[in-house]
Nucleic acid binder design. Structure first.
Lengths: 212, 212
DNA sequence: TGCTAACATGAATCCTGACTCAGTTTCAGG
DNA sequence: CCTGAAACTGAGTCAGGATTCATGTTAGCA
């Protein structure tokens, strides 16, 4: 019997690497269009230009491919956001750059909106990780800005991070998925940046702090 | 051949009504726990305490049940939010009451988080309607408050509505789904109400308006 | 050139579970 | 206390599609 070695993730020749990434891209496309369960391996392999059997040289199962799509695109998104904001000074300007980069990236990968939401039932850890990793990076960046005195002090930076992520997610969702626009209009970006600016720069609350 | 009349939505006896709503509740539970595709009619009917064939007296298909779950719970949620805010005066107080009611309701129906996100592939109109109806009501309420001078003027109330929905959705998602808490902690509620307060009450932007 | 690991093929298998159907039970009103 | 319309039953059918596998092809290197 042939050893039938499953191709390992790292040890691929250039040819193998190309095939694998074509499968990931085709998976993103088909999962987005059909949903995880209605996406067939036949359609995915067709999209990648390979035979069905080839699929199983690179992935253990359909679920495994979904995991790979979410994890790899997650890396890309986080790297894109980090790159977009690293050179920018001032919290509000960083938010502006970050939201703009997020909308641009999501417009190219709108399928991810629906794909991430399906992964809960395939691998709930991957689902949680998608949000946690984004939130952790965001919260850390906000904390740094707070420490630098660029924004008011917030005693719950994590909640702040989720709130801001929610703003970006929903405004993107509206235009890219619900209304099926090609991009998020500049006016929407301007509105939320203004909203965020007011929220972050406004003077600290007048109410006295209560214990507990 | 027996006419095999499918039971119509409105014309049900009390017994039929009870069975139907047991199926909807069981559907909510099983769809939430297993996901749409892995939810079996067998498990749903078992949960409702009826035989499999009974299912098809009330719903055309599994998809049809999912639609019904989302539509009926959507009505309930919108009614709950309207009731929670109608007596309250002042925009910030309304927001506080609204977010609190949203978190309470979602804590009881956290499965909806995942269910709504699956309905895109079953009936995308139902998916869009869930968000649009919530956003429309929210935007209208915000506009009324703006007209009453309770908050600053915003020229894009719709985007504002989606942004605020996003805040509630994500903060709820974090605690109820990602971190699997039983409730959203008061501290998180306080943080976002404060955030919203600052954003809505802050003085209008200093920047000059640019035409077009 | 010949060799071999890596890569690729696609038809056949096999399981799962939505949906059907021929009949049974309930119960309100006559 | 009958009758029929409404409600209910659950075993069987059947299609779809993930996964397997026996076999073929490519390409770098001795």
């Amino acid at each position: 019997m042939t050893p039938a070695v499953r191709v390992e993730a790292g040890s691929l020749t250039a040819r193998g690497e190309r095939t694998r990434s074509r499968l990931v891209a085709a998976g993103e496309e088909v999962f987005g269009r059909r949903g995880f369960h209605d996406a067939s391996i036949a359609e995915i392999t067709q999209g990648a230009g390979v035979a069905q059997g080839t699929f199983y040289l690179y992935f253990e199962s359909k679920r495994d491919l979904l995991r790979a799509v979410v994890e790899e695109r997650g890396h890309e998104l986080r790297a894109t956001l980090a790159r977009a904001t690293e050179g920018v000074s001032g919290r509000v300007a960083k938010e502006h750059a970050g939201f703009a980069a997020f909308f641009t990236w999501m417009a190219r990968h709108r399928a991810l909106y629906l794909i991430v939401r399906q992964v809960e039932y395939v691998d709930s850890e991957v689902y949680r990780a998608w949000y946690r990793q984004l939130a952790d990076g965001y919260a850390a960046a906000l904390q740094r800005s707070a420490d630098a005195g660029e924004i008011g002090q917030f005693d719950d930076v994590e909640t702040l991070a989720y709130a801001l992520m929610g703003i970006g997610d929903f405004v993107g969702l509206r235009w890219l998925v619900i209304e099926k626009h090609r991009t998020v209009p500049p006016r929407a970006l301007a509105t939320i940046v203004q909203l965020v600016e007011r929220a972050l720069l406004a003077p600290p609350p007048r109410r006295p702090r209560r214990g507990r």
